[in-house]
Amino acid sequence: MIWDAIDFVCREAALQLRRERLIAISTVSTVAVLLVVLGSIALFVMDLRAWTGWMTGQLEVWGFFQSDVPRADATNALEPIADWPEIQDVKFVTKEEAWQRQKQDFPSIAKLEDAIDNPLPDAVRIKVREPQYTAAVADKLARVSGIDAVRWGGGLAQQLVKFKRIVNWVALVVSLLVLVAAVFIVHNTIRLALHSRWREIYIMQLVGATRTTVAGPFLLEGTLHGILGAALACCVLVPAHMYLRDLAEHSFFPLAPDRALLFFALHLLLAGALLGLTGSIFSIRRYLRQKPDWHR
């Protein structure tokens, strides 16, 4: 019995998809356009997150040891630091390594090598997991025995935290607005499509079909339209993002990795299915309950 019902819903939906091509084209294209807009916002947010993650990876907290601290004591001090939960990576930088890098970065210093002694102390370089941890890590590091001075990009870290928060909120609000608009537009598109089939829906009920029997194929049809629209949007957005990512690979603005696109595509397909389904539910309810004007 239940299989007969499922079979019936599938056959009816397939019949409608085959026969009502114009309706299918208009619904699928509407969903596709809306999801390209919504998906673009989602990709933009993903990329900004990837960028802030990348920027976070660039944030470093430096701690400089007092010049009279023996190197063995300095390296011992690193062990508890490595266990701090906020940090991603910790590295001891000897004053010789630091001096060498200075000379590489500033060739003019190399010319004066004979004239001046290495003025740099031994140091510890820490990378934090999230930008908001930077200040706390710098504070903790300043209290480590033997540390003379701490340097960190305080302003940049705080700006990054603020920026990330604003991006999240703006993305959430804009996505919600676009989503509401999308539901409204898809609902109206499906409603217009169903309007032409109002009599058909009514006749189905006159010959004894239950509301579920009538609505089932329309809901499946709407869901399939949504998935097809989402698939079209994926066909536009995914290759476009892959192309942009290739362009930006070695730039200061690396985009979200390609593996993230798989999850993005799956979410977009789900969003398309839900858009089609909810749009159909809102639309069909009206036509199931009202009698068409038969003589118009």
Binding site: M1, D4, D7, F8, M204, V207, G208, A209, T213
Partner: peptide, 11 residues
């Protein structure tokens, strides 16, 4: 066929 399906007639 639709009228038959609507009345629950097996395929």
């Amino acid at each position: 066929a639709f009228a038959l399906h609507a009345t629950g007639t097996p395929y």
